[in-house]
Amino acid sequence: MSSISIEEIADLFANNLSKVLRTMAGFEVSSIQCGQQGMPEIEPSIMGAMILHGQKDAMISLAMEDNTAYMLIAYMTGILPEDLEEQDLYDGVGELVNIMTGEVKARLANTPYQFRLTSPFALGGDNLKVVFKKNLQGACRFLTAGELEIIFRISYI
């Protein structure tokens, strides 16, 4: 298999996330590289993440504001946002990471980029910050569907 850049791997994840959101919540999602003109500033207050073990270890994350998480989980479960509890959000964004990752794992199986999953986890709070070692390779996608805004990141760690 020819080499795959981290940008291409980011696209695999972002495309699969779009598919998950279309299938399970009915959203049509568009994706751009982060930092492009027109990308609004968002302050994520919830983040779902997973560490992937492979030839190169990586961390993937989905970050969003609470309102987006409420809306996504509500559409996926058919439960009104006001009836969802905080625990449902953490569980939901963690599971979203898990579902997004499943198909990418299968696509990259038996290639030099194959990886093993670990348990997804979720973080909530203001000013969330993730610190890696300096100069790590990473890629980022900004996904939107109407008012829903999600930041996907992958970083080799």
Binding site: V20, K105, A109
Partner: peptide
């Protein structure tokens, strides 16, 4: 009902006795 979509895992589950296999994501 799982995210495990590698063919070898599907085969393992069927061989172990699963009657059906549904990969996440799915529509209701």
């Amino acid at each position: 009902v799982t995210t495990e979509s590698e063919r070898k895992n599907i085969v393992r589950a069927i061989q172990a006795g699963a009657a059906h296999y549904l990969i996440k994501p799915f529509t209701i």
